[in-house]
Design a protein around this nucleic acid. Structure first.
Lengths: 318, 318
DNA sequence: TCAATAGTGTCTTTTAGACACTATAGG
DNA sequence: CCTATAGTGTCTAAAAGACACTATTGA
């Protein structure tokens, strides 16, 4: 139910501030790839903004903001995403992730945030929004690394070089992605840490994306309208952080009914046989599913299929 | 992010009332089973309360209520469930489902509701809560039926007889479960309809439950601490509304690592060979998963895995 | 005896995964 | 020629599903 009228002996309706937060994921070339490394090695990036005001001023956070008085939840998420990326009709996929609203998650008072997950093909470098000092795409791996490790030596961005030269956003000393760099602190906290409970939200979003592309064609949201099987495979490999056999992948993906529709055209390549171009098909669920390479019998780590969201527990606390 | 401080040129923080709603599912014998039908045919039931005050006075709704000023979301859901069922330490499973907060879903103003999904073994008949005229378990099928059909002739409760004799809650003329009965109307609306957007929430909850038990051991939440493979199979059959081959089911469920732990004991039966008793094992994800009998290649109906959760789209509008 | 449920085994089909081999581009 | 990517075929193992058969109870 939604609430009770005044005569009901319920706890008084707590009035809370309502916000949306976005876990916007995209694939971009790993910046700062050392010479001699394979170029164009896509990595998973998330959109972050640097907070201009307290609390957590100077810290990086997921983009988001308050929901307008007459604004729908999804509308608010769409608006925030458009504001931050400068893109009005966003391609890709947007779905509700979970709601984080336990008391204490925001020092200013009770703020309930409905988090959304957005998957999009390579978006432009973000435009500084009105509510943030700056914003940028940050490699997810550098944020989820337990504590500065898990970053493959040399394949991840070295300190201060996550942004390709000329990207327009100067590297900042507060860079959150500098996993290998010295850890600076702002009012006693690890400055690499995200504001509020946003690291937890990010984790949930990434896990949701990982399971989502198993059972749905959502992986195509990371691709342009027309794409090759090889591109799609690189999406899966990047999001899952695995290697997949190109031959078996090709067979699976092309035999899943309604997943891909051939365009008849073919892509030009730098070297190698030209590949067929496909569009996303009408399927909403994949059959058979594209299951992640299975770690053996023992429990795989999460708690729930989130049903419809497939597996993946949805926490409700920061 | 969660919000911006006052100096930010964001839309002003809309203050909203925060509520939780519960989709509490359990398995109970179909009431009103005509003589001659197989008894003890479990069916999926959802807990509903009858609203005492406007709006939607007299209509049935999901149990729920406002979140206290210093109360966590999950805490509020747990409290509401305990109040409505009279059970303090609830067995079973509780997870966040989705949040419904679009303007207009509540005629009194902006009310944002975080819905939770609860799965529990046969709970007692509900105790009338302080905020509802009455509450009861209602067969899900009668609520989700397109418009009075989809109810297998003779196997569903006939008008006014959903409650087993002596259940303590007299059948009311407003009974929402009377799918086959005449449709009465209150202020112009089909009285069988649930209040607010609760039918949509119920649909989402049922679909989440259906996919949840595919990838997680959540089906055991419908069982007592010790149960037989046959009982577990009946859970799957009821939730999925399918028949499953007992022999293949037995093999699958006992070979999924960590799903079931044998107790060594055996159950006594009325007729038939005694069955081994199991407890729920430590697994959090099933491998291999218990996939629903697959409707052929065409898309299976939802939009997303949610969720590892697997599949299942999470809408954010009523 | 029979009916009913529990549990095992066997066979076929589908799918996953390893991997050989051919096709078509650029250098 | 080479290398690199695309795409097909073939084999094996795992899993799903159909179903025969045995086991153990109550009536």
């Amino acid at each position: 139910m939604s609430s009770e009228p005044s005569p009901a002996p319920e706890p008084p309706p707590a009035l809370v501030a309502l916000a949306v937060d976005l876990v916007a994921l995209t694939l971009r070339p790993a910046a700062g790839t050392p010479a001699g490394e394979p170029v164009d090695q896509d990595t998973l990036h998330v959109l972050l903004v640097q907070r201009a005001y307290p609390p957590f001023a100077g810290r990086w956070a997921l983009p988001g903001g308050f929901v307008g008085p007459d604004e729908g939840l999804r509308d608010a998420a769409t608006r925030e995403l458009a504001e931050e990326t400068g893109v009005r009709r966003l391609p890709g996929h947007l779905e509700q992730l979970a709601t984080y609203g336990d008391p204490g998650r925001d020092p200013r008072g009770r703020v309930v945030s409905v988090a959304f997950l957005a998957l999009a093909p390579g978006l432009p470098d973000p435009v500084a929004g009105s509510d943030a000092a700056s914003s940028r795409w940050v490699p997810v791996r550098s944020l989820l690394a337990p504590s500065g490790d898990r970053v493959p030596l040399g394949s991840e961005a070295p300190p201060g070089s996550e942004v390709p030269a000329g990207a327009g956003v100067p590297a900042r000393s507060e860079d959150p992605a500098t996993a290998a760099g010295p850890i600076r602190r702002v009012d006693g906290a690890d400055e690499r840490a995200l504001a509020f409970d946003h690291l937890a939200i990010l984790r949930d979003g990434v896990e949701r994306a990982r399971s989502k592309i198993e059972y749905s064609p959502a992986a195509t949201a990371f691709c342009p309208p027309e794409f090759t099987v090889g591109q799609l495979r690189r999406v899966y490999e990047t999001v899952w952080d695995t290697r997949l056999d190109p031959r078996n992948f090709h067979r699976k993906v092309t035999s899943a009914a309604g997943f891909l529709v051939p365009t008849g055209r073919t892509s030009r390549r730098d070297g190698g046989r030209p590949a067929e171009l496909f569009r996303r098909g009408p399927a909403t669920l994949l059959h058979p599913a594209m299951l992640r390479p299975t770690a053996p019998p023992p429990a795989r780590g999460q708690d729930g299929a989130g049903g419809a969201g497939g597996p993946g527990k949805i926490p409700d606390s920061p």
